[in-house]
């Protein structure tokens, strides 16, 4: 096995809120290899969202190093980070974050638009991604005309359309009922077994149980890291 896809070394992320210094991440080191299906668990305030923002290149560490695909993001400009997010990362959010009054297929096309893909190819690839999440027939629907589960599947299609190395899902089932939650998790599992690296951030143990590896965080530190069966039971 060569370099890990994601490599965190003693990563720090500190904020100052007024006079108080908050250590959102306090010396985290871990590796995630290509193709892994990982869940990051923890209560709110444990640092798991900060971790997701860092891994997703929405944020940069204040200390330590983060290497994605072998390159240290510390020296990257905001535009470099944007390119990285566009090409290497896909995001799925708890509240879907689809653009309002915009059709499903146009939402899925968005990353391709910023990648400079021509409109014909853009449409074809977006339709392909929608087909992959089972929504090819709903491509013209706007988000208000779609159910929560369908909206999340459109969001997953958007995250996949640029064929990223890593799919980051932040509480992807947080706004869904249990039946659609199962559908969405099944979809993520399928993607995980198809070779794409899936990183799931959640506070719910039953959601984390879908992953193969679970990392538990508390107070900005990793406290447990191991196979799902072992960690979730304990």
């Amino acid at each position: 096995m060569g370099d890990p896809l994601i490599e965190l070394r003693d990563v720090q992320r500190r904020y100052t809120l007024g006079d108080v210094e908050v250590r959102a991440l306090d010396g985290v080191s871990l590796d995630i290899a290509s193709g892994e299906f990982v869940a990051i668990m923890g209560a709110s305030g444990s640092g798991k969202s900060t971790m997701m923002n860092l891994i997703g290149c929405l944020d940069r560490p204040t200390g330590g190093t983060y290497r994605l695909n072998g390159s240290d993001v510390a020296g990257f400009s905001r535009a470099d980070l944007a390119h990285l997010r566009n090409k290497t990362l896909g995001f799925v959010f708890q509240n879907f974050n689809l653009l309002a009054r915009t059709s499903a297929v146009e939402n899925v096309e968005l990353p391709l638009l910023y990648a400079g893909v021509k409109s014909k190819e853009r449409r074809a690839r977006a339709m392909e991604a929608l087909a992959r999440v089972g929504l090819a027939d709903r491509f013209e629907h706007e988000s208000t005309q779609l159910s929560g589960g369908q909206q999340q599947r459109v969001a997953i299609a958007r995250a996949l359309v640029n064929r990223p190395a890593v799919l980051l899902a932040d509480e992807p089932t947080g706004a869904l009922d249990s039946k659609t939650s199962v559908e969405v998790m099944k979809l993520l599992e399928e993607l995980g077994s198809s070779g794409i690296t899936v990183i799931l951030v959640t506070h719910a143990a039953d959601v984390a149980a879908h992953a193969r590896r679970v990392i538990v965080m508390r107070d900005g530190k990793v406290i447990t890291d191991g196979p799902a069966e072992k960690v979730v039971k304990s």
């Binding site: 944007a82 995001f91 968005l110 990648a115």
Partner: peptide, 11 residues
């Protein structure tokens, strides 16, 4: 959202 999916500040 646009930034998350890869829009640069200039875009």
């Amino acid at each position: 959202v646009r930034m998350a999916v890869g829009a640069t500040p200039n875009q």
